[in-house]
Amino acid sequence: MVGNASCAAIISDRRITGLSADVIAELVAELVPLRHERHQAKLASRPRKRAVGAGAKHQLVFVDRLLATLVHLRHAVTHDVLACWFGVDRSTITCAIAEVRPLLAERGCTVSPGVRLRTLSEVIDHLGVDGKTGIIDGTEIRVRRPAAGSKNRDAFISGKNKQNAVKTMVVTDEDGRVLLCSPTRPGSCADITHARQLGLVKLLADGPTVEILADAGYQGLGAQTSGRVITPPHRTFKRNAPDWYEEMYERQRKAHSSRRIRVEHGIAHLKNWRALTCHLGRREHMSHTVQAIAGLLSHQQTADLTSGRPM
């Protein structure tokens, strides 16, 4: 177990975890009962082979396991370094992160105290009820290249950056608050294909009237959603365009970009968590990592708004 002084330093200094002490306290109060309930359900799902109380004991209490996970997500600290800091074996840190990370990912994004969004359908309904504009964009996270000879090895090569990456679709509101990060897809998947696979077209067709801003990577969705997805204007003149058209086109493009820039700010806040800059662990964990960080960031943003502190 980490010393009380070190534990207090992690909690009190927001630079270490990216979260305030109040938000960490709320996380502990929420996750401890949930973790205990799932642990008991797991034990009850199979015949008992040991006496009650037998078996290996956790070397880290749940609060320390949570803090280790937060530090790992915020600064991409390796398991070996965390093991030295907390005075345990590396495998203990690995097990702790593997246990806590899915719990954080399932929380969803907080939009107000007690209200969370976990699916794209809930996001569309939330935007429709509040009459807000949504903004979508795809972002890529570099990952390790699959081993030689592995199946679909080239699927992770991004057509944009020519690097091995996974892609997630980020949804924010017009204020730049993160509302959703989708499960990750291989980097070769186009932005518009990812949006279609998530069911965005059907949700906009069957759901409330919502305006969605997107970049040129989503051109084509506007026609499929009756104009609800707004993308930059197409160029009418490919060559020898008149001066008046160039001025009009540039003005329209900049107006759209200035409205859509909020999602870039939201992605920048996400990338402040170093686990999303270059992931060197297993690619299978990336969906949980992205969604856990989105949930933590949105929780802190909501807490800052409630307290009157600027985001």
Rank of each mutant, 00 (worst) to 15 (best):
R46C: 00
Q40M: 13
V77N: 00
A41N: 03
D80W: 03
R35N: 07
R50M: 14
D80K: 10
R48F: 01
V77M: 07
R50P: 02
H39K: 10
V28P: 00
H58W: 10
A54F: 12
H58C: 14
A56C: 12
V77I: 06
R74H: 05
K57Q: 10
A41M: 03
G55V: 08
L43G: 00
R48T: 05
P47R: 08
R50F: 08
H58Y: 08
L60F: 04
E30C: 09
Q40K: 11
V71R: 09
V32G: 01
T78I: 13
V63S: 04
G55A: 10
E37Q: 14
L67E: 02
D64S: 15
R65I: 03
H39L: 10
R35D: 08
L43V: 04
A51T: 10
V71M: 15
L70M: 05
A51N: 04
R48S: 12
K49P: 02
H79Y: 12
H75D: 13
H39T: 13
A44L: 14
R46M: 02
R74K: 15
L43K: 06
A41G: 05
E37I: 08
A51I: 06
H72G: 09
G53V: 08
P33T: 03
F62M: 08
L43T: 01
R74V: 10
R50S: 13
Q59M: 11
Q40I: 12
H36D: 14
K42W: 07
R48C: 01
D80I: 08
E37G: 05
V63R: 11
V77G: 00
H75A: 12
L67F: 02
P47V: 12
G53W: 02
R50G: 07
K57L: 02
A68L: 07
K49G: 05
A56D: 09
A68I: 10
A41V: 02
V71P: 05
S45V: 06
E37H: 11
S45N: 12
R65D: 02
A29F: 01
V71C: 15
G53C: 04
V32D: 02
V63P: 00
Q59T: 14
S45F: 04
K49R: 09
L67S: 02
A41E: 11
P33M: 05
H58Q: 15
D80P: 00
A51H: 08
L70I: 06
D80E: 15
A29R: 13
L60N: 06
P47G: 01
T69N: 00
L73A: 08
F62E: 06
R46H: 01
L70C: 05
A56E: 13
R50I: 13
L31C: 11
E37A: 15
H39C: 05
L60H: 04
Q59P: 06
Q40F: 01
L70Y: 03
Q59W: 07
